[in-house]
Design a protein around this nucleic acid. Sequence first.
DNA 1: TATTGTTATACTCTATAACTATA
DNA 2: TATAGTTATAGAGTATAACAATA
Lengths: 176, 176
Amino acid sequence: MARQAARKAERDDPAAAGPGQVKLGWLGGTVGYYLRTAQEAAFEAFARRANGADARPWRFAILALIDANPGITQGDLAAAIRRKTSSLTPSLDQLVRQGCVIRARAQADRRAYALTLTAKGKASMQALLASAVEHERDLDRLVGRENRADFIRILRRIAEGLAQKPGRPNRGERTE
Amino acid sequence: MARQAARKAERDDPAAAGPGQVKLGWLGGTVGYYLRTAQEAAFEAFARRANGADARPWRFAILALIDANPGITQGDLAAAIRRKTSSLTPSLDQLVRQGCVIRARAQADRRAYALTLTAKGKASMQALLASAVEHERDLDRLVGRENRADFIRILRRIAEGLAQKPGRPNRGERTE
DNA sequence: TATTGTTATACTCTATAACTATA
DNA sequence: TATAGTTATAGAGTATAACAATA
């Protein structure tokens, strides 16, 4: 019975063990499939880790990026996490409402907002950072210390190499 | 003007170049951040590649998995892509409606469905496979042939190592 | 005219819970 | 009672388009 319950959980819970007996076929030799499953697993693991702190998807990244770039505009912040500004607005609204972020008109361009963290925002970031550090330690253990730098380098190459090139062709650089 | 438009596109389009001048700070040394951005870039690149074929998120994986495991049940299929069966139902409904997949009651357990591909389903899979092969070639180029096997191995370790262990503690690690 | 950001709106994906049919 | 799968429903997260304010 406990046995059966465990089997059910293993089958039914998508966060569970994984494919098991299922043959992955061509997919199993693929970077794409594992890139996705690894990312999802890592993402969920971080959310579990940060349980208690509010760990919504990009919250930590947003706080960390504002911290690293005080006065950053919403457009630049959106670009850094590859989202539209309109997608960012609700998250920032929440952060402002919570007193974590200050939205001040940029002096140079009064259409733009300059974002900065409040003390509370820094504290919230620190709390998430603690989870993130542990999470990275987990990842390190799995990646292997000696592979870490190479692994990150490859991920960066993928992110940059496959990014949608807006309009312009792929490397000849002539902007037509 | 073309210049300004390009700058706007680069700022506004989340699929564009990337952070640019933005300092990533701690995030920039992190596996997590690049794992996510790389996965998203790869995912979007595949969708672009398969443009024309219906490349909705897991469609190719679903078809490929049914092909590799004829008669697979919906529960096992859901587990392989780490989703709930209820999340899979709409996709399968569509595939059945399109005449790509046959849902037949399993003889062993008449509650379950045994899934198989029709000729049309195989054809649809082949079309997506062509895009997937090209896509993997792109990834190979970025990953580097000599790194590919290690890279996949690491991704697998992450996916398996960080998967939610249902109930039971983490392999002897005290749950504190 | 172009650009920054907001608002309104819609869409996709996923999960939870209640349910049916079978075991 | 337990399990396979469906249905109804709700909630994230994101995008597009129209808009206001500023450049």
